[in-house]
Design a protein around this nucleic acid. Sequence first.
DNA 1: TAAATAAAAGATAAAAAAGTCTTTTATTCC
DNA 2: GGAATAAAAGACTTTTTTATCTTTTATTTA
Lengths: 145, 145
Amino acid sequence: MGIFSKTCEYAIRSVFFIAHRTERGTKVGIKEIALGINSPEHFLAKILQDLSKKGIVKSSKGPNGGFYMDDGALKRPLVDVVEAIDGNSLFFGCGLGMAFCSELKPCPLHNEFKIIRENIYNMLVKTSIREFNEDLVLGNTNLKK
Amino acid sequence: MGIFSKTCEYAIRSVFFIAHRTERGTKVGIKEIALGINSPEHFLAKILQDLSKKGIVKSSKGPNGGFYMDDGALKRPLVDVVEAIDGNSLFFGCGLGMAFCSELKPCPLHNEFKIIRENIYNMLVKTSIREFNEDLVLGNTNLKK
DNA sequence: TAAATAAAAGATAAAAAAGTCTTTTATTCC
DNA sequence: GGAATAAAAGACTTTTTTATCTTTTATTTA
């Protein structure tokens, strides 16, 4: 198990993929995305429907349809994608899963986790979706396998 | 979803609970542990069987039996518990779930995640199980709810 | 040695996450 | 308007995780 759910991993990878195409000025269909990020097509379809409802990606049906992003969405921080899929328990929940863990009634790892959660949160807040494009374009990073 | 699996959360909490009792010189039964950390009894039994096989806790059957830890185990870092249950993908896996992500063929979040994974790993390596006892004894931290 | 105790082991069951397949709806273009 | 295209929606299936219940084995103590 990683930090994110599998669903969230696919979500992030697909958003990067769509953003990449959007900056080249084209829409992209689900088959191509699924191939490009190595994910199951129909499962990804569900995820993108979700991201679409939450305004992170846009879509259009019919010939020449597909997924794309508007300029505002490209500027959004990565945390928006993660929160849309996995919620915010990763940043705000107790590391030991205790519902009532708090500053006043902390679990033994409370302070240790506070730092880690903040690290994760800050990383995801300070990076916009668009920031990852350049390296994708240059081929410095990849989304497949 | 948190950073650890539910199973791992119960594992860590039960290990803290047992360590606490061990330092007071007593063994503790599964019913009491389950109550003390607010976990399902029979599910926890499975987890402790696992931790027992892996040498993290010890157990004895029969009257006055129960779980306890030897001195070596108390000194072990917390990461041993996490690895025993959740494996090491949290520290060494790709944040976007890509099997072949590496320094040479990095995913877009590779460098960002490296830092976070190192933070988590270092935190879990530098803390020994015993270290959390004092605050438990003093009532500064709690394991229930 | 029999009764009591407590963990180990085994067998299911329930819930959640991940994945697949089919039908419907919207759009384009001829 | 009809055919083709592509996403949306709905219905399932499979796998994994979490949880429960029962039986067995080991140990103690009276």
